[in-house]
Write a protein that binds this DNA or RNA. Structure first.
Length: 289
DNA sequence: TTGGGTCAAGGAGTC
DNA sequence: GACTCCTTGACCCAA
């Protein structure tokens, strides 16, 4: 069975989980608190909507707690919002919704700059803490490997060295291939060294296949989920023909969808659909809105 | 209220 | 060396 989901916001309701603010306004605790409550209310709304429409996956915005890992954050967010996060987790489990998060390109644990690595780890720990409070062991923290710094073996070694002690992060972490630097095969290898799973993204794989077919990429990435005892995850998106390679289209091209289904050969997978049209992009794949 | 410039952060590619 | 693009847009000021 293939299960589907979409990221960060629902355009139909509408509801979001990614409201943020400028760093210059971070000192305003009341404002931060109100904004986070909106994000958490949005999460609650989306979980209920997903359950009603049979969409079991949702990716929360990275700014669910904006600037949570920043030293200037104005209060103890775990104490303040912990109960709301626990309730969201209970609701998600009750309704069978699997949650994930995907920090962006600034998170670089393999950077040669210690301060960059340090900030990256702080952000990853924040995401892991969110998942701890939510309390669902099948939550996924999706991460790209980041830059190669003109030396992939050295970068790989730094990445593994930085991540290996981070047990609290590793229990949720999964590594994803990207469209120009790290292929599925490379990501699977690093993930294997850390004892964590890997995610194959179909569009990134098209642009950076490393000699593998899509089926070959799935053959490598899907078994990496066995140790965690969770359903394998994949990412599906289509190229926006008007933009540069890698840009997501509004919806999913059915050719790409069929390619994914064929390459899966009946294997189980949770598929995150990355499309500008969010939940609307699921309609051609069988979800009725 | 709307349009458009800007926004914490890193890195790679282009010119 | 400056600029642009990338996650995923949202904020925020000027008009």
């Amino acid at each position: 069975m293939i299960r589907l989901g979409y990221p960060t916001q629902n355009l139909t309701i509408p509801a979001g989980t990614n409201r943020t603010l400028r760093l210059a306004n971070l000192h305003d605790a009341d404002r931060v608190r109100a904004l986070i409550r909106e994000n958490l209310a949005g999460l609650d709304t989306v979980i209920r909507w997903n359950a009603e429409y049979g969409v079991p996956l949702f990716r929360m915005g990275q700014a669910l707690i904006p600037f949570a890992s920043h030293p200037g954050f104005p209060y103890d967010w775990e104490a303040e919002h912990g109960d709301e996060l626990r309730r969201a987790g209970e609701l998600a489990r009750e309704l069978g919704i699997r949650l994930s998060m995907h920090p962006g390109q600034y998170i670089q644990p393999g950077s040669p700059k210690p301060e960059v690595t340090g900030r990256s780890l702080a952000e990853l720990r924040y995401v892991a803490r969110i998942f701890d409070l939510i309390g669902s062991p099948d939550s996924v923290l999706v991460l790209h490997m980041g830059g190669a710094h003109e030396d992939k073996p050295a970068t790989t070694a730094r990445f593994i060295e930085a991540m290996r002690p981070e047990e609290g992060v590793l229990k949720y972490l999964a590594l994803e291939n990207d469209e120009r630097t790290w292929t599925v095969a490379e990501v699977v290898e690093v993930a294997g060294s850390l004892g964590i799973p890997a995610i194959a993204d179909t569009l990134h794989h098209d642009l950076n296949p490393g000699g593998l077919t899509l089926e070959g990429a799935f053959d490598l990435s899907l078994p990496t989920w066995q140790d965690r005892g969770a359903r394998p995850k994949l990412h599906l998106s289509s190229q926006n023909p008007e933009k540069q390679p890698g840009a997501h289209a509004y919806s999913v091209d059915l050719v790409d969808w069929r390619a994914l289904v064929d390459a899966l050969r009946g294997r189980e997978a949770d598929v995150m659909v990355e499309a500008k049209g969010k939940e609307h992009a699921l309609v051609p794949l069988g979800i009725k809105l």
